[in-house]
Amino acid sequence: MLVNQQILKALEAESIEIMRETAASYKQPVMMYSIGKDSSVLLHLAKKAFYPAPIPFPLLHIDTTWKFKEMITFRDQAAKKAGAKLIVHTNQEGVASGINPFNASISEYTRVMKTVALRQALDKYEFDAAIGGSRRDEEKSRAKERIFSVREAGHKWDPRNQRPELWHTYNTRLAPGQTMRVFPISDWTEVDIWRYIMQEDIEVNPLYFAKSRPIVKRGEQLIMVDDDRYPLNPGESIQMQQVRFRTLGCYPLTAAVESTAQTLTQIVDEVFAVKLSERATRLIDGANEDSMEKKKSEGYF
């Protein structure tokens, strides 16, 4: 076996161990499903972890109503194929207030439509554990995240008061009011994700592959205009451009990269060659140096 395959095998086994530990420890676990490549991998790992039994928890998608159209289509198909129950939640109060990516700061929009929405959904369905696809290589504050990470009442994360995590002995217990966030693919890197998708032939969203798409250039960012809600500034125009996405999110906030990568092999080559950290294409993270840590303490994934 090649060393890369050995790495994937070891990562896969660790992730499966964590998912099984979650299923065995909680009354109402849920798996976050954000439609991206990491979610596709999570879903695939969940199938493997429990086979021949079905996946023992539902999937939860927080829909901000600003996702790419192709994401929603893909989401519904993927959940159906996996035989998993899909729960979609939107912060209706947020929608009613009229907040959108253009009339509010990015951080306020994210707080209302993602963080608050997530907290609402976790409370509504009384989920005691939520599995997420965050990886330690994505961003600095994630590098200190535990695999089983306790959230205090109100879903707050206190980075100074984390439980020590040793060996493979995970403390999954919860005191009243606490909930758990679980990160089975913490140790994976972006390249691992793509290699695994290739090796396992996992279906991923078409937005990851380069295609001619309607693009407006705003500052340095290439934004795909996915519907007519995107207000163009004077002088801006929509051009068809060969692009792909490294991460998926709300379309006005997720920049595309110029690319010709149309196959998984080409994507892996590109990820190796570009060497730009993937969250650099996310507009919400750049607001200030430590914005991820701040969002996480409020309950963001």
């Binding site: 090649l2 600095k140 504050s141 590098a143 200190k144 980075p159 890197t189 430590d290």
Partner: peptide, 28 residues
């Protein structure tokens, strides 16, 4: 290799941080 906000201000690493890299022989 440093992580969180407060710790950077103090100039020390307090918690445990994890980082992945590829060795030249391909291992992780």
């Amino acid at each position: 290799t440093d992580g969180l906000e407060a710790e950077r201000e103090q100039g020390i690493t307090i918690d445990v941080a994890y980082r992945s890299m590829s060795l030249l022989d391909g291992k992780r």
